[in-house]
């Protein structure tokens, strides 16, 4: 039972990332009909928003502290971050400590802007071109974006720790009435799951309960009619592209304590996210979320030793295997609408 719970928890954090990226991919595909291979790069840019904020907050100046000396007896230089000098050591220290969650505030406008520029500058010229062209140009864009990041931040992973309060592990098993220390789980991964659930809920609520969301959903169902009703659907879809970019970026920001950001992390996630989208059903938002969590959990179950000894190597291929079976037996995916990209 406890192993079972642990595997579900293990699957949740990866599944959350898959679900968030797949959600953005689906938003873009459902609204604009574009297959965006640069979406992984957006996830990566989000992660580097966190890195940037962390670096900004830790910008420091050096002072010589005459009271402390190193082992040679020379006075030591002490680095003080500017924020600590401005806000006092307590507030400033907290700011530095909480850099990753704070980066959300930075990431939302940045990612929206990146999304707008991408859509207006590039993607909009590709609506009428075949899907293969869209794949190719966004693939090229992904290469360019990740190379720019590599040029600025270097090729090595940059560690970005979670706030110290959220760093350790938590006895989850005790919470649900099991014996102590049966199921111990890192806190930040739980935070990530809760965060993902909030973002997903927010996107769904936005689409469901606002007039804007209603128009967008109408546009997804029948773009032409909405246009004929005198609504400038293009403008709203551009905004949705920005929103999708922001969702991917937020997924990246919060993922940084789990995986130190490097420039190719986007590509690594992209392949799996595409599989997730296809399994969930092209253009189906609930499908993308469901498939994201499902595949994440499935993967963590497949990497259990009991399963691995039964079918060696299954943990490596399970996701792809599921995708192949789904594509061959039910091409519109788990929750895809009939007729949308079935062939």
């Amino acid at each position: 039972m406890d192993a079972f719970l642990l595997q579900i928890l293990n699957g949740l954090d990866k599944g959350s990332a898959y679900a968030l990226i797949a959600l953005g991919l689906t938003l873009i595909f459902g609204t604009l009909g574009v297959v965006n291979f640069a979406h992984g790069a957006l996830f990566m840019i989000g992660a580097f928003c966190a890195v940037t904020l962390q670096r900004l907050l830790t910008l420091s100046y050096e002072t010589v502290d005459p009271e402390r000396t190193d082992f040679l007896g020379n006075p030591m230089t002490v680095e003080t971050p500017y924020v600590e000098a401005w806000f006092g050591p307590a507030t400033g220290g907290a700011l530095v400590d909480w850099a990753v969650p704070l980066a959300i505030v930075l990431a939302i406008p940045v990612m929206m802007l990146v999304g707008f520029v991408m859509e207006r500058g590039l993607i909009q010229h590709f609506y009428k071109r075949p899907h293969a062209d869209q794949i190719l140009v966004t693939f090229g864009l992904a290469i360019v974006l990740q190379e720019i990041v590599k040029a600025v931040y270097g090729a090595n992973p940059i560690p970005t720790p979670a706030p110290s309060a959220l760093r350790g592990s938590m006895d989850v098993g005790a919470l649900v009435g099991m014996e102590a220390y049966a199921v111990v789980y890192p806190i930040w991964r739980l935070v990530y799951f809760v965060f993902a659930a909030l973002v997903i809920g927010g996107v769904f609520a936005f689409l469901r309960f606002t007039t804007f969301g209603m128009v967008v959903r109408a546009g997804m169902a029948d773009r032409e009619t909405v246009g004929l009703l005198g609504i400038d659907i293009d403008k709203r879809f551009t905004l949705m592209f920005g929103l999708a970019a922001a969702v991917a970026g937020l997924a990246g920001v919060m993922y940084t304590p789990i995986l130190s950001p490097n420039y190719h992390m986007g590509m690594d996630f992209l392949v799996l996210s595409f599989v997730v989208v296809v399994v969930g059903g092209m253009g189906s938002l609930p499908g993308a979320v469901l498939a994201g969590f499902l595949l994440g959990i499935l993967q963590s179950f497949a990497s259990m030793n009991e399963v691995k000894s039964l079918i060696p190597g299954i943990d490596q291929i399970i996701i792809y295997l599921v995708a192949i079976v789904i594509l061959l037996t039910r091409p519109r995916g788990l929750m895809g609408r009939r007729g949308v990209m079935e062939e």
Binding site: V35, H131, A132, I135, V271, F274, V275, V278, M282, Q316, I317, Y320, L321, A323, I324, L327, L328, P331, M341, E343
Partner: peptide, 17 residues
């Protein structure tokens, strides 16, 4: 058995496997 984007993803999945 599939075409378009699905074919691309199927081949990608096989290669990754």
């Amino acid at each position: 058995r599939r075409s378009g984007i699905y074919f691309s993803i199927l081949t990608l999945a096989f290669a990754q496997m």
